[in-house]
Computed example of a mutant assay.
Amino acid sequence: MTKLLAALIAGLFSAAVFAQATPAAPATPAAPAAKAEAKAAKAEVKAEKAEKTAVKAEAKADKAEKTAAKAEKKADKKAVAKKDAKKAEPKKEEAKKEEKKS
């Protein structure tokens, strides 16, 4: 009987030891650090996208300026051509008058 009581008491003690929950404290502080790293990575990606967008916008603006400059040059050439044409008309008329006289 004493052996039976001793075995039951030893079983209770061993069950009590293994039934206790282990603390999970070390895993909790690591989670906020991982979240911070993830946020930093997202911020970097957003910054890179914003930078690419800015570069594209700048390229579009440069292209628009070049196109405007070309259009302005064409307009200037047309204006010069019109002036030259107006100056040439009287000369042509004079040449026709001289031919008629001859």
Rank of each mutant, 00 (worst) to 15 (best):
A19E: 03
E51F: 07
A27L: 09
P32L: 04
T22W: 07
D62L: 12
A31F: 08
A36W: 03
T67V: 13
K73V: 12
A79Q: 01
A69L: 11
K70A: 12
A33K: 11
A40P: 01
A54I: 01
L8S: 11
E48P: 01
K60Y: 02
A38Q: 15
K52C: 00
A21S: 13
K92H: 08
A81F: 02
E65C: 00
K39V: 12
G11K: 10
K83P: 00
E51G: 03
G11S: 14
A79S: 04
A27N: 01
A34M: 09
K49E: 14
E99M: 06
A15T: 11
A68Q: 10
K82C: 00
A43D: 15
D84Y: 00
A21V: 12
K42N: 12
K82N: 05
A50F: 03
K70I: 04
T53K: 14
A36S: 11
L12Y: 02
K73P: 00
P90S: 06
K97C: 00
A43W: 03
A10N: 05
A69F: 03
A75P: 04
A69H: 05
A34G: 06
A34C: 00
E44Y: 02
E51T: 10
K91G: 02
A47F: 02
V45G: 06
A16K: 05
E89W: 01
A36D: 12
K46N: 08
I9S: 13
K97I: 06
K86F: 08
A57W: 04
P26Q: 09
D76Q: 14
F13A: 11
K91V: 12
T53D: 14
A6S: 10
A38I: 06
A57K: 11
A15G: 06
A59Q: 11
K46L: 10
K83H: 10
K101S: 11
A47M: 04
K63V: 05
K101C: 00
A33V: 13
P90M: 02
K96E: 15
A85I: 00
K101I: 13
L12E: 10
A41E: 14
A27F: 07
A43P: 05
K77G: 01
K96D: 13
P29Q: 07
D76L: 15
K63C: 00
P23R: 10
A79R: 02
A75R: 07
K101H: 12
K92V: 14
K100E: 14
A38G: 07
K60C: 00
S102G: 09
L4E: 15
T53G: 04
K82F: 02
M1Q: 08
K73Q: 08
K100A: 15
A75L: 06
K52V: 02
A59I: 05
D62R: 12
T53I: 06
Q20A: 15
A88M: 05
K39F: 08
K77S: 11
A54Y: 01
A81H: 03
A95G: 02
K101W: 08
A69E: 14
